[in-house]
């Protein structure tokens, strides 16, 4: 029993060291909330490994020592009923350990429920979760985007979460733990991003067939970059479109605009039916599934259902001919906000 158990553990430990913790999002926080959470995770892991080691040591020692030996004659050990002192010890000590853990837990629970105060300036984002995409609305700037949430570094970010349909859950492991997005209520989640960069986020509550692909990114950028992005969203510069892109724009107006909005043509139109495409070109993947290349985009337009199940997007396979698709794709690929290249 014992050697094999040890072997198993060492195999797992090897496995653990094989992947460096820096790639474990939760253990590599870049936001204030995730930092608080990590410190609790570390404390609880420490306390719990004390428990685990105690139990496994006793277990191994007893197992080795009291295992039936071949030819053992005394097979009737003394039938002790118990030991009050010992039993009290292993009631009290766990209570102490748990108290050590409970105090910071309660403190941090209250701390995370309030908005952070350390940083200067607060930016509020209304996040509306849809089956299967995320809508980000900046009430202070009057802009709306989707799929990539832009926030400035070292500011208080306050997320106001709600949902348009089923329950979703907003999770950016490196910035903050989850909060549920529920249709009849608004939940708040706040954090201070500490470092610029692109962070993965996903929906963490089963929300339907394409739950796996309900992902998003958070782009933390310097204040200057953020401001210019906001400016770019408000006043997009689309003067130098090629002729193909112009044809694509017209096609977009006829075919896509009933669901998708872009800031290039009508930022005031705020249709929450499908993702905003104002910064489509800077997204890494189409609908979070396929890599964002013209070939894949064509595939997507032809048969979205095959790529992302239960998606609301209709097929354009027979609605547009090949040249039209090419124009449309060219236009989509030009949708970029200045200073926000991929």
């Amino acid at each position: 029993m014992k050697p094999i158990h040890l072997l198993m553990w060492s195999v797992f430990m090897l496995l653990l060291t094989g992947c460096s913790p820096s790639k474990w999002d939760v253990l590599n926080p870049k936001g204030s909330t995730a930092e608080t959470q990590l410190s609790l995770i570390q404390l609880s892991m420490l306390l719990m490994s004390i428990v685990l080691v105690t139990v496994i040591t006793l277990f191994t020692v007893f197992l080795v020592k009291y295992r039936e030996q071949p030819g053992q004659t005394n097979r009737n050990p003394s039938q002790e009923a118990g030991n009050k002192k010992l039993e009290i010890i292993w009631t009290i000590i766990p209570i102490l350990i748990l108290t050590l853990l409970a105090i910071p837990t309660v403190q941090d629970t209250y701390k995370l429920a309030d908005e952070p105060k350390e940083a200067e300036g607060t930016i509020t984002v209304k996040v509306i979760a849809h089956q299967y995409w995320w809508e980000f609305e900046y009430p202070d700037f009057g802009i709306t985007t989707a799929e990539i949430l832009h926030v400035p570094v070292d500011k208080n970010v306050v997320i106001e979460l709600t949902s348009a349909d089923t329950i979703h859950s907003f999770w950016v492991p490196q910035l903050a733990g989850k909060q549920d997005a529920i249709r009849d209520r608004t939940n708040k989640l706040s954090f201070i991003p500490r470092e610029t960069g692109m962070y993965r986020g996903s929906c963490a509550e089963l929300c339907g067939a394409a739950h796996a692909y309900m992902r998003f990114h958070v782009k933390v950028e310097s204040e200057a970059d953020f401001d210019s992005w906001v400016e770019g969203m408000k006043n997009p510069d689309r003067s130098n479109l090629t002729s193909s892109e112009k044809r694509g724009k017209a096609l977009f107006k006829d075919n896509c605009l009933s669901c998708h909005a872009t800031n290039t043509m009508d930022s005031e139109i705020n249709r929450a039916v499908a993702p905003h495409l104002g910064d489509f070109a800077s997204r890494e993947r189409i609908a979070n599934v396929l890599p964002n290349t013209p070939e894949h985009l064509k595939k997507w337009l032809d048969n979205p259902e095959a790529i992302k199940p239960d998606v609301a997007m209709p097929s354009f396979k027979d609605k547009l001919n090949n040249e039209e698709k090419e124009d449309l794709i060219n236009f989509l690929m030009s949708l970029e906000v200045e200073g926000d290249e991929k």
Partner: peptide
Amino acid sequence: IPTFVIGGVTGVMLATVPADYQFHD
């Protein structure tokens, strides 16, 4: 015994609310 203790200690870890925001689901 060892298996369940691992499950038990991760259970306690899950009970720490802020950390559970990360672990949950």
